[in-house]
Write a protein that binds this DNA or RNA. Structure first.
Lengths: 216, 216
DNA sequence: TAGATTGTTAATCGATTAACAATC
DNA sequence: TAGATTGTTAATCGATTAACAATC
């Protein structure tokens, strides 16, 4: 029986950063890497790196040399599911939604955007990067027919809750929510919020503290 | 002497969510609100709401009735700096960068995008929502001349570190980084990362756990 | 008054950091 | 071998949660 190590959300957020770094290092022709090296490059502690890597990698590192980069990259990619493709739809094709429909990087993460949905009749029927924009009343059918699990929600805040209800009743299992509000959905629905206002609040606060420090 | 309550990053991230909710409630004509009501609507604990609000609001709530919504909204907006405008530039006018140049919501947060910068000669000189796209070699001069503090960094990962060095040497104080890598900048530079790959890693992991649970 | 809500103070929880023996 | 690096186990830190007296 396989041992199951649990992983925290904080750790999950770090793996893509490790991965990017490891790939860049591999491309330089380096074949093995140690926790202290990674820690130094990414400005974190080596203890944290070791604990994180132990979770995703079945085999352990070797004292003195560290870990094999290729193996490690593969372990992280498998752990993050980059090797299995999931279908997703973009709901709300505004500036941000359109950017996501055009974004090539998602395929790297195993995410495949099938189509977009919008209320605006002037957008319906148009194609963005080869993917069609449908009207909202086509959404439910497409989700259940193609068994889409993931919705990228980029509608205005005041529409977000109504749309999320529709998504849930159509069978969507996870919502990647870019509206800066709390979605009121059943607790078994996975919601991951990306709140730019929150992020900016942190940035502004740090910046103000810095400016205050400089001026005194 | 004013008492200074310290605030955590986690708390800062929550204020914009409170604010959105309070504004929507105010628009319904409600004039006062209690911590338990907010907690129930936003799916968190009332203790947390109380502690968070105590930090931003000088006057305390009243037992039974709670807090005055208008006052509270004003307190949060002031605390987050939404009433003072900061200038910013967008560096890297790809799909995401262009979306940010077009995004109207920033003004609500007190953020004013002045201009964009890009390497691509076909983009240079064009205007996006009235804001011009300049070549990268104009960047340093504009930053120092207009004393711009904030850069929204939306360049590809492999360019991010070189560009951030240029930003820092030009006098930028804070970088809102959308490249999924660690920026190697001096520690007094404020960096706020928005890593979509990290966010997606969390979503995928939760989704996989949910699917595993359903299938057993 | 009675009870809902308040702010404060203490307990719990989880994640990070430190310490250390094991090993290539 | 010596020393860098490893994984594990214990200590610290910070944030969340719980408990409770005060009050409109």
């Amino acid at each position: 029986m396989e041992e199951i190590k649990s992983v925290s959300m904080k750790q999950l957020e770090r793996y893509p950063v490790y991965l990017k770094y490891l790939i860049s290092i591999k491309d330089q022709g380096i074949t093995s890497i140690s926790a202290p090296m990674i820690a130094k490059a990414l400005d974190c502690t080596e203890e944290q790196v070791r604990k994180d890597l132990q979770i995703v990698s079945p085999d352990s590192g070797k004292p003195k040399s560290g870990r094999d980069i290729k193996t490690l990259i593969n372990d992280i990619e498998n752990f993050l599911g980059y090797n299995d493709v999931s279908d997703a739809i973009v709901v709300g094709v505004g500036h941000l939604g359109e950017a996501f429909m055009r974004y090539k990087g998602f395929s790297e993460f195993g995410l495949n955007v099938l189509a977009g949905f919008d209320l605006d009749e002037t957008k319906i029927g148009k194609k963005v990067d080869g993917k069609e924009i449908f009207s909202m009343d086509k959404m439910s059918n497409l989700i259940s027919r193609l068994k889409v699990n993931i919705a990228i929600l980029t509608v205005p805040s005041d529409a977000a809750n109504a749309v999320s209800k529709l998504l849930v009743s159509s069978g969507i299992k996870a919502i990647w929510n870019f509206a800066p509000i709390h979605l009121d959905v059943p607790e078994d629905i996975v919601v991951e919020n990306v709140n730019l206002a929150s992020s900016l609040a942190v940035l502004s606060h740090k910046l103000n503290k810095k400016i205050l420090k400089e001026n005194k």
